[in-house]
Amino acid sequence: MMRAVSAAETAVTTHPWEVHAEGLRVRAGRHLAVDGLDLALPSGVHGLLGPNGAGKTTLIRALATVLNPAGGRLTLLGHSVDSRSDLRSLRRNLGYLPQHFGFYPRFTVREFVGYMAWLKEMPKAEVAAAVQRSIDRVGLTSKADARLKTLSGGMLRRAGIAQAIVNDPQLLLLDEPTVGLDPEQRLDFRELLRDLGTDSCVLVSTHLVEDVVAACTDVLVLNVGRLVWQGTPEGLTMQGDQGDAGDSPAERGYSAVLRRHRAEAVR
């Protein structure tokens, strides 16, 4: 396994990891989509890269406490997560944007974000201001009172991000947040990510390597349910050479990491 920082090595230190997993296994249906994953994430913005079927969405769903771990150990914000855990206090500090999220089409953006704030059991007195703040942060101020069914795909995605950050979560999980965003919105979103990562742990799953390089402090590469590389965006850039597939040094580095992992797997 090639990575700049080994989770297994660092796990014994006293770092207050926001996310800590040892030998984590998670099923997606009958398939073991995450298989023996070691992970240690402090505060900051972590980019999760990997080819289709690598287990990114399954990992994020397990970290969002939607899926039960099938094995191994998982600790989130100091709470041990297993089938018997009381997840209530942990979930109050979670923010989650699923890859495909359903919504109530007749709700306005404000009602939708407010409803999620209520489900996240935020103090009643804080809800209205928190809702407005999160809508402003994603740039939907002018659409705050528009119904969700009238919004474009990119706007819906931003409404999804607004509900995820409404409770100022300590652990924020975003699955493909930039899908449907135009280039300008993506730049704004990177800015927002950097801002959010200063005092919380943000895990962003994406297939856009340039988003990870621009906004993340740490990169994770997942392949066939395992962490195959972890390091800085600069470190990822240095992995590749001119012969690797990709339009940028970072993309070539990402391709090189996957190519080497596949070659190791064959041996």
């Binding site: 406490t65 997840l87 206090s89 979930r91 999220f101 999620m116 489900l119 059991e121």
Partner: peptide, 13 residues
């Protein structure tokens, strides 16, 4: 429709 979002909130349970 919003099941996936709701499943990650403390109100589930």
């Amino acid at each position: 429709p919003a099941w996936e979002l709701i499943a990650a909130t403390p109100a589930t349970g």
